[in-house]
Amino acid sequence: MLLLVGGGFVYLTCQHRRQVAASALATRIAKEQALVLNNERVGMVRVEGRHILWANRAIHRILGYDDGAVAGASMRLLYPDDTTFDHIGALGYEALRRDGRFHTQVKMRTRTGNELWVDLSATALTNTEFLWMVVDLHQLKHSGERAQHQALHDGLTGLPNRHLFEELLRQAVAQAKRDGQGLTVCYLDLDGFKPVNDTLGHHAGDEVLRAVGDRLRSKLRSNDSAARLGGDEFAWFLSGVANESEARAVVERCIEIASRPIELTCGATVRVGGSIGLASSDDHGYSADRLLQAADEAMYQHKHAGRTRDTSVETDRLGVSAHATLRNGADRGDSLLDLTGPGAAVVEPDVVRVAI
């Protein structure tokens, strides 16, 4: 008797545990289904007889309707015209009857009457009910474009980054070689940038970099290209320019505008200079890698030579003024241009000595 009672108790306990486990599983599945159905990106409508029985939040957001506004409406509401509505109905329901699923890309109509390209798919739930799913292709397209732009451009200045610049340079070199034209690469490293960063902070340094990038962009021709390579280093190439003498006028314009005072949002006015190295196709041939490397080497050689000089800068509470001078020299056929302008900014009246 005791064994019978004990066995019954164990059986009931096991049954209860299985019911609890099944209930927990059902609850978890229901939550997961709710998360899927109420996602923010994929619009969903449950349809019977081409009338909407239920719609999730995403479809309202994609098409611009208030929550709950499309439930009970005809699917015709979502299409721009009767022709599209009839065409999708004929193709879609034939595929659903045959394969149990359907997929296409089509224009839908938003609440404001605008047309919107979407990825449209459907699956059969029962013999009479179907789940239609809508993905905004416009958003995906622009998300992809933004991601590609971010991968190839400097996030601070909007200029091409090193990867894109090297690709543009290779294309420009190949074009110049085919056309029998010259090309010159310019490599710029800012002087006086570190004191701005150290004294006024990284936000001020970012403003300086943006200003220099904007100024370089404004002075270059449409067939030239400038880039921020990283840190305070910039580069650009001059298509159709084969040697130093041809490049000088363009480079001097870039130097002049880059060295103008920069007014910062903190109230300070700063001025930076730069060391520039040039490498032309006349001296280094039609190799993108060699041109960029030679311009980089020329810049560093002249920058390091210039660091033996000390420059005094008188400052006030808003910033500094610095005098820019242009020099040139040559070594191994590279043109070396140096703009000296130690742009250290301080907030206390004093005389600052900066080695450049």
Rank of each mutant, 00 (worst) to 15 (best):
V42G: 00
M44V: 05
V45A: 05
V45Q: 04
R46P: 00
V47T: 10
G49R: 09
G49Y: 03
R50G: 03
R50T: 07
R50F: 13
R50H: 13
R50W: 10
H51Q: 11
H51R: 11
W54P: 04
W54L: 15
A55T: 08
N56A: 09
N56T: 03
R57I: 06
R57P: 03
A58I: 02
A58K: 01
I59Y: 00
H60Y: 09
I62C: 06
G64L: 12
Y65F: 15
Y65T: 06
G68E: 14
A69F: 08
A69K: 05
V70P: 02
R76N: 11
L78A: 13
Y79T: 02
Y79H: 07
Y79M: 07
Y79E: 04
P80K: 09
P80D: 08
D81E: 13
T83K: 09
T83S: 09
F85V: 04
D86K: 01
H87W: 01
H87D: 07
I88W: 01
G89Y: 05
L91Y: 01
G92T: 07
G92F: 01
Y93N: 06
Y93P: 01
Y93Q: 08
A95W: 00
L96V: 01
L96Q: 02
R97C: 05
D99W: 04
R101L: 11
R101F: 15
R101K: 12
F102M: 11
H103T: 13
H103P: 00
T104L: 10
T104C: 14
Q105Y: 00
V106M: 05
K107C: 09
M108D: 02
M108P: 02
T110H: 10
R111W: 05
T112M: 11
T112G: 13
G113Q: 12
N114H: 13
L116C: 06
W117D: 14
W117F: 09
W117T: 12
V118P: 03
V118H: 02
V118M: 03
D119C: 11
L120A: 08
L120Q: 05
S121C: 07
S121W: 01
A122G: 07
T123L: 11
T123M: 10
A124F: 05
A124L: 09
A124H: 03
L125V: 15
L125R: 10
L125T: 13
N127I: 08
T128G: 00
T128R: 15
T128E: 15
T128A: 14
E129K: 11
E129M: 14
E129Q: 15
E129V: 15
F130G: 00
F130A: 01
L131W: 07
M133I: 03
M133F: 06
V134L: 06
V135N: 08
V135C: 08
V135G: 04
V135Q: 09
H138A: 15
Q139M: 14
K141F: 12
S143T: 10
S143H: 12
G144H: 12
G144Q: 14
A147N: 11
A147D: 13
Q148H: 14
Q148T: 14
Q148Y: 10
H149G: 12
H149C: 08
A151F: 06
A151Y: 07
A151Q: 10
L152T: 10
H153W: 07
G155L: 13
L156T: 14
T157Q: 09
G158Y: 12
L159M: 10
L159V: 05
